[in-house]
Amino acid sequence: MPTPPPDPALSASLQRWRVAPPRDADFRTAVWRRIRAATARVSWPAFVHTHAVAWAVVTVIALGGAGLAGRTVARARTVADREALAVGYLVSLDPRAQAVLRP
């Protein structure tokens, strides 16, 4: 589409046009007030909802890892308890151990 030729009258009007808005002394304060109000309106559920997928992944990994760790520690303790009981039991039956341990 070809550009129309410049209108000298319009150009002159635009050159003479001046805007003189009234000065608003409270403008900056009002902007910050609105920003603070908007921030305060964000609730914890909204925060979590905003990052729902990330928090779901973090929660599943944390709970799964904790459950696995708890079960592993419990099984390790069961094995250790069983071994300690077996050793104590054998010591009570084994004269070789008794001969070493008795004063």
């Binding site: 928090w55 929660t59 459950g67 708890g70 079960r71 520690v73 419990a74 099984r75 069961t78």
Partner: peptide, 24 residues
């Protein structure tokens, strides 16, 4: 999340062991 993980870990520890063996 950390508190929930602690609770789940503790529950799995309690349920995963052998109470009779532990007591003995």
């Amino acid at each position: 999340v950390a508190a929930a993980a602690g609770a789940v870990g503790g529950a799995c520890y309690c349920l995963g062991g052998d109470p009779a063996l532990r007591s003995a």
